[in-house]
């Protein structure tokens, strides 16, 4: 990633009960704002967790790629107004 500061454009909302822990979202997020959480959902999968760190340029840029890759319809990106 370049030194250019990225502008935060959205928030990722995760429906943890729908998640089955394939982690496509974690892998394909271009700014790496998602990570595998230690928590378990009721089915025993580890859902992703939304983590942001503007210092390291880890902000949601609202590209919606996680939504497209999620096979379980479990991720939403809420864009900032």
């Amino acid at each position: 990633m370049s030194d250019k500061k990225l502008k935060k454009k959205g928030n990722v909302k995760i429906d943890i009960e729908r998640c089955k822990g394939c982690w496509y979202c974690v892998n394909y997020c271009p700014t790496k704002v998602l990570m595998v959480s230690d928590e378990l959902n009721s089915k025993g999968y580890h859902p992703p967790k939304f983590i942001e760190n503007p210092e390291e340029n880890k902000v949601c840029i609202a590209c919606h790629l996680c939504e497209l890759y999620c096979p379980d319809f479990a991720i939403f990106v809420e864009e900032l107004k």
Binding site: R18, C19, K20, C22, L68, D72, A74
Partner: peptide, 12 residues
């Protein structure tokens, strides 16, 4: 959640 396995491409 649907019946498909974790990471199944049918959901995509």
């Amino acid at each position: 959640p649907h019946v498909w396995c974790p990471g199944c491409g049918i959901g995509i």
